[in-house]
Design a protein around this nucleic acid. Structure first.
Length: 253
DNA sequence: TATCCTTTGAAGTGA
DNA sequence: TCACTTCAAAGGATA
């Protein structure tokens, strides 16, 4: 059943414009890059996509930002004025159809100084997704237990969304409407193909938005690290994962 | 009810 | 520095 869905999605993919230089034959594409060290599809190794930002208005590439983070450089107040204007319904110079005012990942919470919204930033979620309403007898807990519980009750600050995730959020409904598919795995495959079919300029919009998301995230949660959420999701065993990726590699080769 | 699937990109980890 | 791993979103499928 699942495979059937995937196959139907694959058929749909075959009717969608493939990335440049690919798709002349309806064969499965080579595995899409999923290693951080590899450049995005079709982007020269030494000239990352972000060169788009290098001129005439230099904007640090995400890699630059991470390097700055890693180097613990003093956090300069990022110029988010443009970002805030984006969240206020204007895409600025970016001709785009999405209403960024309602973009859930870009809505600001009350934690933004001076921001009137009472909605917490979407990056913050309760650990279980539900509120704990039941009181409990603290006296029965050991110090270690209560500490662990306290830790577990800390709201989880989610990772900021990357460019592709922002793209997925925006385009998911459209793809669902077009394909009448609801299964996310299949939808995401289509979105992955469409992502690669985007022009560099179109992708750059999302890279820029993601960069601003990270900037805002850094400002809101200065001490936060992606490490904080490591191990919070129970994942399949590495063995199984490797097996499946090997399967995929074999499938594509 | 929890996890898997599936995608890309950012960031963490360990050698 | 490099390869590998995890987690972001989404929701149907599955155990």
């Amino acid at each position: 059943m699942y495979k059937e869905t995937v196959y139907s999605a694959f058929n749909l993919l075959m009717h969608y414009p493939p990335p440049s230089g690919a798709g002349q034959h309806p064969q499965p594409q080579p595995p899409l890059h999923n290693k951080a060290s590899q450049p995005p599809h079709g982007i020269p190794q030494l000239s990352p996509l972000y060169e788009h930002f290098s001129s005439p208005h230099p904007t640090p590439a995400p890699a630059d930002i991470s390097q700055k983070q890693g180097a613990h450089r003093p956090l300069q107040t990022p110029d988010l004025s443009g970002f805030y204007s984006l969240t206020s319904g204007s895409m600025g110079q970016l001709p785009h159809t999405v209403s960024w005012f309602t973009h859930p990942s870009l809505m600001l919470g009350s934690s933004v100084p001076g921001h009137p919204a009472a909605i917490p930033h979407p990056a913050i979620v309760p650990p279980s997704g539900k509120q704990e309403l039941q009181p409990y007898d603290r006296s029965l807990k050991t110090q270690a237990e209560s500490k662990a519980e306290k830790e577990a009750k800390k709201p989880t600050i989610k990772k900021p969304l990357n460019a592709f995730m922002l793209y997925m959020k925006e385009m998911r409904a459209k793809v669902i409407a077009e394909c009448t598919l609801k299964e996310s795995a299949a939808i995401n495959q289509i979105l992955g193909r469409r992502w690669h079919a985007l022009s560099r300029e179109e992708q750059a919009k999302y890279y820029e938005l993601a960069r601003k998301e990270r900037q805002l995230h850094m400002q809101l949660y200065p001490g936060w690290s992606a490490r904080d959420n490591y191990g919070k999701k129970k994942r399949r065993s590495r063995e199984k994962h490797q097996e499946s990726t090997t399967d995929n590699s074999l499938h594509y080769s």
